[in-house]
Computed example of a mutant assay.
Amino acid sequence: MIIVAAPSGAGKSSFVERITREDSRLVDIVTFTTRSIRQGETAGLQYNFIDHADFEQKIKEGFFVEWAKVHTNFYGTSYSSLETAWNQGKTAIMDIDIQGVATFKSKFPDAKTVFIHPPSIDELRRRIEKRDGKVPADIEVRMANAEKEILEASKFDYQIVNDVFDKSYGEFKKIVEDLLA
């Protein structure tokens, strides 16, 4: 299991989406969220989008390996998605929030973790504001959370700064390939 975490907008989803297209040994674990779908996203591909009531019911049913409230929405990873990947003989790779990393590591201590840094807080803000063509209502929450998340980076097995995407992705790919070897 490979877990990728980063502040919102640092590039973790882009890295995971690309590497799973390029390496058939990997399966991107699609998490569940209560946030609204963004322009360019497809339900079931980047996330499984569900409403708050459905999410809360799944929590009660023990559906999630881990779940957390991130910014103003819920995110969670299902047991069944991991089991499906493993039954196919694949390595699970996922991008999740910092809160979920600790839960995963407690349940799966052999999981490897990668933290993606933004080049700077200012650049992170610019990326988030540019992403949907508008400034998200929770931008200040995201920025405050980003600063806290970056303080957790030293707990990760690997760290990468995503300053130039192709260069940074190359570093990420090398780490993943070494882990799969």
Rank of each mutant, 00 (worst) to 15 (best):
K112N: 03
E17Q: 11
E140K: 00
T33K: 07
K112M: 03
T113S: 15
W86N: 07
K112Q: 12
I121V: 13
I29S: 01
D157V: 00
T72V: 09
S14F: 03
K90C: 09
P7R: 12
D110Q: 09
V30G: 02
D97F: 00
T113N: 09
L151K: 15
N73T: 03
S80C: 14
P119W: 09
F108Y: 15
R21N: 11
E83A: 13
E177A: 01
R38Y: 09
S78R: 07
R131P: 15
A43Q: 07
I98S: 09
P136F: 04
P118S: 05
T31R: 15
K69V: 14
K130M: 10
A153V: 01
F49R: 11
L124T: 10
G100I: 06
N162C: 04
I128P: 12
F74I: 11
R25S: 10
V16K: 00
I150D: 04
D97E: 07
A137E: 14
A68I: 03
T77A: 14
S13H: 05
G133C: 07
I59T: 07
G133D: 05
V4C: 01
G44H: 13
A6I: 06
D51S: 04
E129I: 08
I116F: 01
K107C: 07
R21V: 05
K90N: 11
I19G: 02
V70F: 14
H71C: 08
V176R: 01
K130Q: 14
K60L: 13
L124F: 11
I128V: 15
E171A: 12
G76E: 10
Y47H: 13
L179R: 08
G11Y: 06
G44I: 13
D110I: 00
I50A: 11
W67A: 02
S8F: 04
R35T: 06
I50L: 08
G44K: 12
E129Y: 08
K90T: 09
R21G: 04
Y75F: 14
F55D: 03
R125N: 06
K155L: 15
D110C: 02
T34D: 05
K130H: 13
K90R: 15
D122W: 01
F74A: 09
A181K: 13
F64Y: 15
K69Q: 14
T34K: 12
E17W: 01
R35Q: 07
R35K: 14
L82D: 10
D178S: 10
T20P: 03
D122I: 02
K148N: 15
P118L: 07
T33W: 03
F172S: 10
D157H: 10
G44F: 12
V135I: 14
I121G: 08
P109Q: 05
S78D: 10
V65R: 02
K112P: 05
V176K: 02
T20I: 09
E66P: 03
T20E: 05
L82G: 12
D51L: 01
D28Q: 14
F74V: 08
D138M: 02
K174L: 11
K90S: 11
I98M: 10
E123P: 02
E22N: 03
P109L: 04
F172Q: 05
V27P: 00
D110W: 00
I93F: 02
D166E: 08
F64L: 11
V27D: 09
I160L: 10
Q57Y: 04
M94L: 12
G44W: 09
I59R: 03
I93T: 04
D163V: 00
V135S: 06
K58H: 06
